[in-house]
Amino acid sequence: MNRISLTIISSLENSRLVGLCAREIACRTFNNEALAEIELATVEAVNNCIEHACAESDKHQITIEFLLSEDRLSIELIDQGKAIEPEWLDNLNANFDCDDIDLENLSEGGRGLKIVKSCMDEVSYQNGNEYNRWLLIKYTGADKN
């Protein structure tokens, strides 16, 4: 079992570093397709913390804990920023529309959490004791479908 913990300041420049770190930690366990999903989900989750919980201020800290075991990679993100709005969590249960793309009202944003959910096997969020905790899990041999 490998456990690695990183603490970054809440700057968007750092989200790419965390994503690359996730890919390196997972590289001997997952195939290329899964590695791309892990990197993307990690970057999106960190971006979400920076943009929403930390309100794009670089004065917050975010701790990211990677735990690689035989059956899974767990990635936990912990920050002390603002709690996520409940309606944002609806994105975790939403899918990308297959048939109803509204070209006239196509939005530039709002896809981050849906991407996290689509790329990982399990995603959960908890808020309590002034901390936000995101837990992302990717199983090594599991078919997420």
């Binding site: 993307l40 970057v43 971006n47």
Partner: peptide, 16 residues
Amino acid sequence: DFVDSSGLGAIIATMI
């Protein structure tokens, strides 16, 4: 090599 949702949003903004 890598595009995230923000990069995708910037491409969509160009299309719009």
